[in-house]
Amino acid sequence: MYDYHTHSTYSDGDYLRSMLAAAEAAGLDGVGFADHCMVLPAEWAVRFRREYGFNFDATYDRRREAIDSLRGDFDLDVFDAAEVDYEPGHETEIRSFLADADFDYAIGSVHALDGANVHAVDHFAALPESRRRDLVEAYFEKLVSLVESELFEIAAHPDLIERNPALRGYATREQYERVADAFADSRTVPEVNAGRVRRDYGEFHPTPEFFEVLDSRGVDFTLGSDAHDAGSVGPLADELRACADERGLEPVRPER
């Protein structure tokens, strides 16, 4: 049982030692730290990094040293990874950063739409329904581009838009099929993500319909709790186990 997607204080998560202790107590065999990372040169991205303190592109070596010093204290495989924001047109910058950083694996994610974070309910709720539908289409276009770029071993929460009630329910089967075809032809694999299964959204990513389309294409999956605090690691590990059993999943390890 491996959880490849957790966060630490090197972005917006909990202390490394606390997360590792929780992972060991949960009976995990391994845990991966994939702290948020942005290397986009766009003005909005630079401003976001400064305002929120997401400077992992400058501190990943310090976290690596901390992980190395903690490995001997826990009976776990511990992975040094990153969750990197993806934007089409910036593949060169991302590829260069990942080559220099040499993580165990990289997770790619689409977080930005219409100049806002996908989680910004008020921003999207103020838009006409037709515009919201167009933005959902834009989200899946970005996701296809992310997968086809093959910059990443894992694609995070592949229907993140579902967490936002202003964007929820607009995804179509045709969009799912387009993304599934991209995954089927790529080394990048999606994750089953439990990040909001115990919170307001209350569901896994991908949705059952999206999962069925991906599964019909023979797409593999990894498992990721997306845990940001030590108290969530154990409960989310239980949720992931139950989901894998129910869906008959045989999760894979990310391959570089």
Rank of each mutant, 00 (worst) to 15 (best):
L146S: 06
R217Q: 14
F211P: 02
E148C: 01
I161K: 13
R163Q: 12
T207H: 04
R168Y: 13
S186W: 03
E150C: 02
P190H: 12
R173L: 12
R198P: 00
H228P: 11
L167H: 04
E203K: 14
E209P: 05
R163I: 13
V144S: 07
P165N: 06
L151E: 06
A194G: 04
Q175I: 08
L214H: 02
Y176V: 06
V189H: 11
E150V: 02
V197E: 02
D200G: 06
E148W: 00
G218M: 08
Q175P: 03
Y201K: 09
R173T: 14
R173G: 08
Q175F: 03
L151K: 08
A166E: 04
P190T: 10
R178F: 00
R187N: 02
F152V: 02
G231R: 14
G224W: 10
D220R: 15
D185M: 09
E209D: 15
A155G: 06
D226L: 09
A194N: 10
A180W: 07
R168G: 00
S225F: 02
F221G: 12
A155F: 03
V213P: 08
T172H: 11
D159K: 03
E209M: 08
E162V: 08
L167R: 09
G224N: 09
L160A: 14
S145L: 05
G202K: 10
G169N: 05
E174T: 14
V147M: 09
A182H: 01
G202F: 09
L160S: 05
S225N: 05
A180G: 14
I161C: 13
F221N: 10
V192M: 14
T222E: 05
